[in-house]
Every structure is written in C-alpha cells, then in structure tokens.
Amino acid sequence: MTRTVYVNGEFLPETEAKVSIFDRAFLMADGVYEVTSVLDGKLIDFDGHAVRLERSLNELDIRSPMTKEQLLEIHRELVEMNGIEDGLVYLQITRGAPGDRDFVFPDPETTEPTVVLFTQNKPGLADSPAAKKGMKVISIEDQRWGRRDIKTVQLLYPSMGKMMAKKAGADDAWMVMDGYVTEGTSNNAYYIKGNTIVTRALSNDILHGITRAAVLRFAAEAQMKVEERNFTIEEAQQADEAFITSASSFVMPVVEIDGVPLGDGRPGPKAARLREIYLEESRKVAV
C-alpha cells in the first residue's frame, strides 16, 4: 500500500513526494531529524522529541517552521492516515533550498525550511524477538564530527559502523574515543554491575537521548544507582549486564561485546525489567 507522507504543508502519496536537488540536506547534510515511536496508535515521548528538535534547530540556526502543537497534529494525522498501530514517525527539517550551492547560508529569517515526515509500520514493535535474545556489539573508533549532541542527518559513519558490525557477525557497534565508549551507532550505551548502571555523561560527545532520560529516571525510582561517567570496553565486558536505549528499540539487552559474553550470554533480569517499566510507563502518557 502506498503511504501518505507530508512534504512542506501537503499530505501526498509517497510516489508524488519531491524535494529540490538544491536542498541543503542533500548537498551538505544541513538538517536535523527526530524519530518518534508509535505504540497502540499513540506517540511515545513526543514532548521530549519536540524539545530536542527545537534545540537542534537552534544550534544550527535553522528557523523553526511550526509550533509543537502543529507538529503533533501532523504526526497524528499521518499515524491515522497510514493506519499505524505500532511503528515510527520520521521527521526531518532542513535549511531548505535557498539557491545555488554555497557554503555560506543566508539569513534564517528569509529562508524557508524543508519539512518532511513519513511513517514506518512495524507490527509488534514492543514485543521484539531481539529483546528476548539480546544483541552482540563490537567496538569501533568514533570518527564522527564533534557536535554529536545535535541530531543532524550526518549519518554516514554510523551507517558504516553498522555495516562493520554486520560483517563481524554482530548486531551493532559501540564507538570509542580516547579509550572510552561514547555511544552506539544509533543509541546510548550502558552496563550494569550489581545494582549500578553506568553510562557516559551528557556532553557534545553523545546524543542527549530522549529514551535515555526516561530510562534513567525509572531506574532511579526502582532504587538502582546511576553513575554518569566515562567507561571502557574492558569495564563493560566485566559487567553483569549491558543494554542500549533508543526511540525505536526502547531498552535492548546486550549479551556480547567484542566476542566476550556477558554473564551467561543471555539477557539479564535488570535490563529486561527496565524495558518492561519503560514500555508500561510510556504507554500511560502516550499521546
């Protein structure tokens, strides 16, 4: 079935959607994005994604083209039009196509951003078999640019990292800078030792994950200790459990790092419980 998508104020069949070849996202990756999960036909953590979107736009000096309320309405319309029960809504805002290719961009107030949204149908998103099996990760050098806190469309190296993992027979990669783990290719990274969760602190080095914030809050409420600090691959390999978080995978257990199994090589109870809590609490406040 042909999806209905949103492009610059219009709901269109995906086969009719077009963006200019001079759009700066195409020419210079000059744009930002957000991905919001849909469970039971409702949006998960929408407010958090909207706040981070506004921050990313401000950091790149791109004018926000609409209000949070308008964005929410478009999200809901697409979910309904495409009959999404479980899935994702992808949103991308770019600086637009102000003219011929030029490194210098014009005044943001006189430039019309490009806005694109589309849905992805993923039945059973919350009941992913991968969550019961766990995932294997490898470590790779972090070679991305220095402002990873801005959720830009510059995703070439993360894509390369996922391909490195696939070639190594793993599911994903954790990136390492100066000997310490930064994050996964499209997710935040954690390990659990005893009753303590360890994850890298927020900075320009990692994305400020929306799911990350919620999971750490729920973990603290569950009387788990949280340490936000640098950690090495070797530390994580000696942990009881490990996991990742993202908007599309929620809480996903990690069972192997660079060929070293964690615990008995199966998802641990604490990561599994955090996933349950996150899904349960997020569904209560979904919009």
Rank of each mutant, 00 (worst) to 15 (best):
G31R: 02
L279Y: 03
P269K: 13
T232I: 06
L202I: 11
Y157V: 14
I206R: 02
D205T: 05
A213P: 02
A219E: 03
A220V: 04
E221Q: 14
K193C: 01
R229E: 02
G184I: 11
G87K: 05
T110R: 14
V32A: 09
E16P: 00
R101W: 09
A50E: 05
L279D: 08
G48T: 11
W145D: 12
V7E: 08
E256R: 07
D149W: 10
S203E: 10
L88F: 15
P253S: 03
E80G: 06
L155N: 05
Q237F: 02
G134Q: 03
V181Q: 00
I192G: 02
E16S: 12
R63K: 15
G124N: 04
V287P: 07
E85G: 03
R212G: 06
I210M: 08
G179T: 00
S20G: 11
N204R: 15
I84H: 08
E281S: 05
E183M: 11
K162C: 04
A170R: 09
E281K: 14
K166C: 00
P269A: 13
T4L: 12
E80T: 09
V255N: 01
N8F: 11
L155Y: 14
L207V: 13
G161P: 09
V255C: 05
A168L: 09
A220K: 15
N58I: 00
G83Q: 03
P158C: 12
L43Q: 00
A214L: 08
R147F: 09
F22Y: 15
G194M: 07
V153Y: 04
L12G: 07
T114A: 09
N82P: 09
F22D: 12
K151I: 07
R101S: 02
E112D: 14
A271C: 03
A131K: 14
L60C: 02
E16N: 08
P98R: 06
G265V: 01
F22M: 14
D102P: 02
V5P: 02
V89P: 05
A242M: 03
Q92K: 06
I257W: 04
A272W: 06
E59S: 12
V104I: 12
R76C: 03
